[in-house]
């Protein structure tokens, strides 16, 4: 009877086993094998070239540039997104009239498809678009042909857009974190004569550490994989200034069909993401609590 029930249990669980094996584990192994070959779509012969693709990648200036851009993207967005999201959350944590309304409004960009956001902003950021006009009005000196056509501003404007889009989402995560802080802590703080800032600094922030860690890790993983924005808005240009790691994989793998080479690039990105997440865990010295 027990064995029979076990067997049925595995049957119930089989959808995930199958999905995991076919659509995650197999591709992971397969692309690693691919990365050791020179497999290209239209050429019939495939050879083992060992780490050849990996060494070629590091002398490929396009790949190195794409890595650099990915790093700029991650390092340049995460602090802003996190701080802004926290600010929103603190602002919208107390009860007051209209709280739900503002929460919903701030969250709205996050539920909108990235493609739609990218389309909207490719117009707003172009010459004569509202963001461009606003920048002119307040006396900034925006590039004459719009933000996306200058190699100095293209990447930063897409980063800005991402911060705008993601803040509302992480705000909700922070709100969830804020609710887990017991009120007694604040009461104790008030009795000890702590100011609002001190309460925030010594109670709220430390208590939010696990959520913050979670947000930073998730956000780095996501930001490292930025693709749709680039595809819709700049296609990697101008002068490769928005050419990111994943875009490199897309171009070499699915445009030029250099499957082996693209898989190697994908694995390097994977290694970087895994390493970065590990370092973040260690740095913040907190366990996984999600």
């Amino acid at each position: 009877m027990n064995r029979y029930r076990r067997y049925k249990g595995w049957l119930l669980f089989s959808p995930w086993i199958l999905t995991f094996l076919i659509f995650w584990l197999f591709p992971l192994v397969y692309s690693f094998i691919l990365s050791l070959t020179d497999y290209r779509l239209l050429s019939p012969d495939v050879d083992w070239i060992g780490l050849g693709n990996y060494t070629r990648l590091f002398s490929d200036s396009d790949f190195v540039a794409s890595l650099k851009n990915s790093f700029i993207f991650v390092i340049g967005t995460i602090p802003f997104t996190t701080v802004i999201a926290l600010f929103f959350a603190v602002l919208l944590n107390e009860r007051f009239r209209g709280r739900t309304f503002f929460r919903a409004a701030y969250f709205m960009p996050s539920i909108t498809a990235m493609v739609v956001i990218a389309l909207i902003f490719s117009n707003l950021l172009a010459r004569g678009g509202y963001v461009h006009l606003l920048a002119q009005m307040i006396g900034l000196d925006p590039p004459a042909n719009g933000f996306l056509l200058s190699e100095k501003t293209a990447l930063f404007s897409i980063m800005g857009m991402d911060i705008w889009m993601a803040s509302g989402y992480y705000m909700l995560l922070f709100l969830g974190g804020l609710q887990t802080i017991p009120n007694e802590l604040y009461e104790a703080g008030r009795i000890a004569g702590a100011s609002r800032w001190q309460q925030f600094r010594y109670i709220t922030l430390p208590m939010l550490k696990p959520v913050t860690l979670f947000i930073i890790v998730i956000n780095s993983i996501k930001s490292f994989q930025v693709f749709v924005e680039i595809f819709v808005m700049t296609k990697g240009g101008p002068l490769n200034s928005t050419f990111t790691g994943v875009y490199f994989v897309y171009e070499t793998g699915l445009r030029q069909f250099d499957f082996g080479y693209a898989s190697a690039a994908a694995y390097i990105l994977f290694a970087i993401i895994a390493l970065a997440s590990l370092i973040q865990f260690k740095l913040l010295k907190t366990g996984w609590t999600a």
Binding site: W24, P27, Y30, S31, F224, V246, L254, Y267, I273
Partner: peptide, 17 residues
């Protein structure tokens, strides 16, 4: 794994598959 593995690493094999 599903959270951390970048989708672009599995997309080429899935495409071939």
């Amino acid at each position: 794994i599903v959270l951390m593995v970048p989708v672009h690493i599995v997309i080429i094999p899935i495409y071939i598959l």
